[in-house]
Design a protein around this nucleic acid. Structure first.
Lengths: 367, 367
DNA sequence: CTGAAAGCGCTTACAG
DNA sequence: CTGAAAGCGCTTACAG
């Protein structure tokens, strides 16, 4: 079906080896007439080089594998999109392989190995505690991960999760909130612990507290977060602000609040993280910590490609997050009046200290 | 780095050709002792077959390419996820290539060709009018598309878009609405025209009308839909119901309604399409036409794989959609009283005639 | 400036 | 039951 180098060579009247050199850009090697004949012949037969054969002889591959938990996750899909672009920009094709939701990543990695990918990008936070992931990769394949991998030894580039927790706490405290609660992701996750601990620490430093009944764990889904918010609201009636570990979960939290007639931000402020496309369009628009998923994907692939070229790359790299203020947070309304003046003063200062953005990602969609 | 067949053969004390046969499952061909020795040797050296070499000699490939507009689109990413799974289930690895947002799909297809994919799945509605897409594929590579491709000649499997329009119209009319408006996707798109025309036809049959000022076009983004809804509301004050061409756009429409103090569904009903993960968690939860993105992806890959095996497959296949009733639609409230009794009777009948679901997709997410 | 040789890791007839 | 040959489409020294 495809024309081979030999077909091109025959048509140009030269050997296929010479054809190979010319088509690989080594123009210095031939006389002008030959060059043109070869180029024309390649064009005429519609020559498309065979990357399989090339990979075989060069013992190197121009492909990477992207091992991903869930491409349909709004945050991960952004990351994967950026990763694919970065790979394509450096002329690398990307295999996509589903890690399989807490399932066994081994088959997907095995498939990638069979296809002799030059390296793999790991986008599988659900597998951070799975020893099979590191075991399958370590020492076998160049790899870069955007999440921690059990056993270590893999370069990691991630958004700075502790800053995320800090920014959320500072924002809430700065607005004057003291009755604070949080809906976290699964606490088995490092991201969750990083965010939560930094959040906690900041709160303590500001003299606010976070009793156990004000912490509810959820499973990253809106439904799970809905249930978690219910628990929170049942446990203690006076919640002035909630920090939620993802925009998608915030959908569930907002619904729980709405169901009880609690107004956001008048009765309760909500700050979350991620800043995915829906954040500017929830009701009300979300104040959230922007997590640079695109940059993470782009940078991770950049490092992976360096690594594949034999360069040394950093073991760990953090990408900064920042607060985006929209309309889901405000100073608390029904506090004792004595602190009102001071609080609103602080609140203004706090608001202007942060970057204010209301951009949203515009995107095509399907049928 | 990788052990080869020869390494395994040397260790087992047989020829590498015999090793090849055995490792490919042709156990009948050797004596029991040999079989065991080979299997053990392969295991010891950690043999991983080279798919590149195999593909080269077999002149066939166990890969497909997935050409996609935007992996980060909530609907397309669901489809892609299902497609990848279906491919993996049949032992095919998937390359992912971005068509590049209305840009040139040729480079991505070229890369896939270089890697000798066995076929390509097209998930690129934004390119349905681009002649380059069909030109690059037709007659060169087995392909199946989930959207129309300019010039035709490519098997297409899509959700049934005209039914989508019908279901929306029937639901609204059944509830008693007559003052209806719509926010459509870009009218250059076939999906949009199919949905819109069917919607229009159904409305007419029911004696409702849709004047031009009640039709606003948007670009699939929440922001675009927000602006479109503004135009609608500015043009004619009495809008009792809106049909929106996607859940994501509905985010913008709901915000526009909210901004004007129009309550949903009390003052205005909203029905949309897609039924992506956020639909049960908007404010209010969305009544929407469920579009089977997962099945579409799965089925499309199934057909592609058949096609790659040389089987004949249908030119066009439609997958059914269905209405999911949640809380964004209701019978109109402030109609003249004369028609109230009849309407509420109809409204009940209409509601019970449809499938009622409140499921949401639960999913893992990242870091 | 051009060509012939060797070989990447496999599979597939074909012999023995 | 096992092995030797040929060849998939390339690239990379090495000769001329």
């Amino acid at each position: 079906m495809y024309a081979s180098l030999k077909d091109v060579a025959a048509r140009a009247g030269v050997s296929f080896q010479t054809t190979s050199k010319v088509l690989n850009g080594d123009h210095s090697v031939v006389a002008t007439g030959t060059l043109e004949r070869i180029l024309a012949a390649a064009d005429e037969v519609g020559y498309v080089p065979n990357a399989l054969a090339r990979g075989l002889v060069r013992q190197t591959s121009s492909t990477i594998g992207v091992l991903v938990d869930d491409v349909a996750d709004p945050a991960l899909s952004q990351l994967v999109r950026a990763a694919e672009r970065a790979a394509a920009a450096q002329r690398h094709a990307a295999f996509i392989g589903a890690a399989g939701h807490g399932g066994d990543p081994t088959p997907a990695i095995r498939t990638m190995q069979e296809h002799r990918v030059g390296g793999v990008l790991v986008v599988a936070p659900s597998l951070e505690a799975d020893p099979r992931l590191g075991a399958a990769l370590r020492g076998r394949l160049p790899a870069v991960s955007v999440n921690h991998v059990h056993g270590g030894g893999l370069p990691v580039v991630t958004p700075d999760h502790s800053t995320t927790g800090e920014l959320a706490a500072q924002h809430l405290v700065g607005l004057g909130h003291r009755e604070i609660a949080t809906v976290t992701g699964p606490r088995a996750r490092r991201v969750v612990r990083s965010r939560h601990q930094a959040f906690l620490k900041c709160l303590r430093e500001a003299g606010a507290q976070l009793p156990a009944r004000c912490v509810a764990e959820a499973d990253w889904t809106p439904a799970g977060a809905y249930a978690a918010a219910q628990r929170l609201l049942d446990a203690g009636p006076s919640v002035g602000a909630i920090f939620v570990h993802s925009d998608v979960m915030t959908l569930g939290v907002l619904r729980a609040l709405r169901d009880r007639g609690i107004r956001v931000p008048d009765d309760c402020s909500v700050v979350s993280c991620d800043d995915v496309y829906l954040a500017p369009f929830t009701s009300p628009p979300l104040t959230t910590i922007h997590v640079p998923f695109e940059q993470t994907g782009e940078r991770a692939v950049g490092l992976l490609l360096q690594r594949m070229r034999g360069e040394t790359i950093p073991e760990h790299e953090f990408l900064p997050t920042h607060l985006v203020v929209r309309s889901s947070t405000a100073a608390p309304a029904r506090e004792p009046p004595r602190s009102n003046a001071g609080r609103s003063g602080r609140s203004l200062a706090a608001a202007s200290a942060y970057r204010h953005t209301s951009s949203y990602t515009s995107k095509e969609r399907q049928s």
